[in-house]
Design a protein around this nucleic acid. Structure first.
Lengths: 241, 241
DNA sequence: AGCTTTATGCGTTGCTATTACGCAAATTTT
DNA sequence: AAAATTTGCGTAATAGCAACGCATAAAGCT
């Protein structure tokens, strides 16, 4: 254990944290993963004790190779979720001088997209909880603003990059995909035009699962064509609204 | 002057800097502003002494309200250029554990666009110099990578937001505007289609400067319609390529 | 059970935007 | 003087997009 006051510098240094906004989709609406701040182990986490906050924590100056690694490590520690560093998308720095009452703390904010249906079992329910975006409580520090910024960044990104793969289960239906887009963009699309567009991109593969499609009301099942999907991510596209 | 070893912390803290990639356009090609690192005042700047680098410097933990302010302050100190905080666009954090040989330094990277023709006089030529993007020397730290990332970010942003206003002189011609876009995107557009598109956006106002247009070869002069320009920035648009 | 409402897939039509060019005039280059 | 270049103005063909109709089966309702 480190002794108090062991680390000295010629000039004042800020603390640096990585915070993560983890979005999940349950087939109906967009959710976000929050943790409850406790006065458990570290004395430094007592600020805003008991309040809800984004998962995240301090950069380990000596061990964390990059900030993305900090985000990954802290998410695992605080919520049980294991994501790879690549899945964290950095979207901004929050550096306001008063944002943490204890000392100067700069946070590098990230967002990540996960298949809620698959990861729900892995999230440590004692510490973490999924909240509907519409029912998020007020958060510690400036995490309200960070969350708002993350959502508007996701909203922007989705116009130019497909995001379904990260959020939907492997097999899904077109109405599900459309609902996902509508949840994120907060708009409504015409059913048939949306279907045409998605099919036109060539990122969907029909799934034959034995069940002979009974009626027109049972939606056709799809999976993503990973190859075309990634190509489209690289090239970018434009989804109107 | 601060005494040595005055600032102590329970856990190690990183240093935090703000670095800026300042792009300018001289009517022909895109340029970037670099500084020559010297062993002048601060002992801490001796790393990579004599090499070219991006302007930037350490966050003043006690005085700088935000990282953007650090960027603004350091740019002024190092190059003489005065920009407002809003003109700095943050595009990423560089946090590799080995990126600075002295200690752990996290940098928040920004880019800015300026009218080269107007600011050239303000840049302190003793310390700073404008380089063509094609002739940039190899840079200190990981600044090569930061510069590459800034350029590709600018390239992305220009697809969805007009950028001419920030880079061109107040009065300019359509060929100039097209050349700017072509310089950034590294592609060629069809002259007439480009003109049609720009006119269609409604952000151009023809300038009557007495000179009765001699021949068709003297390009028509324009200025930006600031109101429509800003509206377009807000809404976003899509420039194909 | 029988009727109404809703969800899904497959299309069509008109409109707008985009692309790929042609042409004339004047300047610059050779 | 001739040739090549640059600029503005225009047009035809095409592709993409938005708005909408129709048939069918499931789900909801009385």
């Amino acid at each position: 254990m480190a002794k108090k006051g062991q680390y000295t510098y010629e000039y004042p240094h800020p603390a640096v944290t990585a915070d993560s906004v983890v979005f999940g989709y349950d087939g109906k609406e967009l959710k976000v993963l929050l943790i409850k701040r406790g006065a458990e182990k570290e004395a430094s986490t007592t600020a805003y004790a008991g309040e809800w906050a984004l998962p995240g924590g301090f950069l380990d100056v000596e061990k964390d190779k990059t900030i993305a690694y900090t985000a990954k490590r802290e998410l695992k520690e605080e919520t049980g979720l294991r994501l790879s560093e690549k899945e964290f998308k950095e979207f901004g720095t929050f550096s306001d001088i008063k944002r943490d009452p204890r000392e100067r703390v700069i946070t590098i904010a990230h967002y990540a997209l996960v298949k809620l249906t698959e990861v729900q079992a892995d999230t440590d329910a004692d510490k973490a909880e999924w909240f509907s975006l519409k029912e998020v409580p007020s958060l510690a520090f400036d995490h309200d603003k960070i969350l708002r910024d993350a959502f508007s960044r996701l909203k922007q990104d989705i116009h130019f990059q497909p995001v379904g793969f990260e959020l939907l289960p492997e097999i899904f239906t077109l109405p599900q995909l459309q609902n996902l887009y509508e949840s994120i963009l907060e708009v409504k699309f015409d059913r048939r035009n949306f279907a045409n567009k998605m099919k036109h991109y060539g990122i969907l593969s029909e799934v034959e699962d034995g069940t002979p499609r009974h009626g027109t009301r049972t939606p056709i099942k799809y999976r993503f064509d990973k190859e075309n999907y990634d190509r489209l991510k690289g090239n970018g596209f434009r989804l109107e609204f």
